[in-house]
């Protein structure tokens, strides 16, 4: 444990640190999206990991210093922090699902469009767009 004067210092160091990290995050968002320098756009694969890791650092700092996790018994910090690992797979699975809904919606739309067209006159476009999915394009024709 730190004594009173030391821990007072940690607090104001923490304030400056959190403020600076937040500013860096906002700066990345603004510069990366071309608000500061006209026409400058950073790719998402650069910006997102940066902002996510800075946020995780902030979270770590809040939990470890402000919530005093650093000074707790190891068992306590493990018992609180370990369960959050369970969220990792949740995050992966939900994200994957979200993208899957997106693609399957787009596919359904495409198929519907093709179905409408093949009912009418142009069956040419359907084979062009989706030559790989023969059953889907042929289904409306058999009805």
């Amino acid at each position: 444990m730190l004594n009173y004067e030391e821990s007072k210092k940690v607090v104001f160091k923490g304030l400056i640190l959190l403020a600076v990290v937040t500013l860096i995050e906002v700066a990345i968002a603004l510069i990366g999206n071309g608000h500061i320098i006209e026409g400058m756009h950073w790719p998402k694969w650069l910006m997102y990991p940066l902002m996510i890791s800075l946020s995780l650092y902030k979270a770590y700092f809040i939990v470890y210093e402000f919530m005093h996790m650093r000074y707790e018994v190891r068992g306590l910090s493990l018992s609180v922090l370990m369960p959050t690992v369970l969220l990792v797979w949740g995050l992966i699975a939900f994200a994957n699902e979200g993208m899957h809904w997106n693609t399957s919606r787009a596919q359904i739309k495409e198929k519907n469009a093709i179905g409408l067209k093949s009912d009418g006159q142009s069956s040419k476009s359907s084979s062009e767009i989706h030559s790989s999915e023969v059953p889907a394009t042929e289904a409306p024709a058999t009805h």
């Binding site: 959050t84 969220l87 949740g90 994200a95 699902e97 979200g98 993208m99 997106n102 919606r105 787009a106």
Partner: peptide
């Protein structure tokens, strides 16, 4: 986490 993960899923499901 439940809310934010749902947010992620819904956001990724949008074009």
């Amino acid at each position: 986490a439940g809310f934010l993960i749902s947010y992620g899923a819904l956001r990724l499901s949008m074009p």
